[in-house]
């Protein structure tokens, strides 16, 4: 009976064992140190920080009410934005599929092609759309072509990577069956691979179109066409009520884009 009481007294409840706790404290401490370093070292003039809420609300006040002037212009710019996103997505399909094909382990012709494909995908994905736009504006001058190319070059990596993964995840069995029937490589692709990746293909392209709509709203900030051009113009001339209208237009565009994609998804998939 005494033993039992002793046992009860020893039963101290702890949430984690010793090792887990040490690791947890270690991670917490490291994170804290990094944060403290970042706060102390960063090049910020702190009085501005405390003033920021005032500044932001004053900017908000200057924007209100949104100006309805130039709605026609804004609508045309929105249309241009949609065109850039759509044409770019359409063009990307033709460029991304061959890359996906050589970058998928089970379809690539040889190792050199595999690495070439992976290199294209990685470089496309690691460079942000707006940086691609910067480059193409420098080459082709300001305008929609730079915007379209920027979106295309960024989307190749996205669509190519996801399609490559879809190809790698196919069921091998139909491929085996087609090979056993004496079909050539091209016929195996058409019959055993293409039908299997079709649903993924539609889903990925629709998803990327949605993303591209958002991305093409900023292209204009570096001169690559779309609604961003007039946004930049309005900001530069301190036409804040117009800026507000443009922002509302962008929200509307993005929401419409989302509605269309979810409609397409439910229809096609």
């Amino acid at each position: 009976m005494v033993d039992h009481a002793q046992q009860l007294a020893d039963r101290i409840w702890q949430r984690y064992d010793r090792k887990t706790r040490l690791i947890r404290y270690g991670i917490l401490l490291a994170t804290l140190m990094v944060v403290v370093w970042a706060v102390r070292d960063i090049d910020i003039f702190w009085p501005w920080v405390w003033d920021a809420p005032n500044q932001i609300s004053s900017l908000g006040a200057r924007m209100w009410p949104p100006s309805p002037a130039g709605l026609n212009n804004i609508f045309n710019a929105l249309l241009e934005t949609v065109h850039i996103a759509t044409l770019a997505t359409f063009l990307t399909i033709f460029l991304a599929l061959p890359v996906a094909y050589i970058a998928a382990q089970n379809t690539t012709p040889n190792r050199a092609c595999l690495w070439l494909g992976r290199f294209i995908l990685v470089s496309s994905r690691s460079v942000n759309t707006i940086i691609w736009a910067l480059l193409f504006v420098a080459i082709f001058g300001p305008g929609v072509l730079a915007g379209i190319l920027a979106i295309v070059f960024r989307s190749i990596g996205f669509i190519g990577k996801l399609m490559g993964e879809a190809i790698e995840e196919i069921d091998r069995k139909p491929v085996e069956a087609m090979e056993a029937s004496g079909a050539s490589k091209a016929k195996v692709i058409v019959y055993a691979i293409v039908p299997q990746v079709m649903p993924a293909f539609f889903a990925i392209v629709i998803l990327r179109w949605d993303i591209n709509i958002r991305e093409s709203t900023v292209l204009g900030l570096v001169g690559a066409g779309g609604i961003g051009v007039i946004l930049q113009g309005a900001i530069d001339t301190f036409a804040w009520p117009t800026v507000a209208t443009i922002l509302i237009a962008i929200i509307a565009l993005v929401l419409v884009g989302e509605a269309i994609t979810s409609l397409l998804r439910s229809k096609v998939l």
């Binding site: 139909p174 085996e176 069956a177 056993a180 029937s181 004496g182 079909a183 016929k187 079709m198």
Partner: peptide, 24 residues
């Protein structure tokens, strides 16, 4: 060849599956 898991082209029609035997 006839397979344990049938190895059909699931998303194609029966006729396309059958005709696939002529791919060679």
């Amino acid at each position: 060849m006839v397979f344990q898991g049938f190895n059909l082209l699931d998303r194609l029609t029966v006729m396309e599956n059958v005709l696939a035997g002529r791919l060679g």
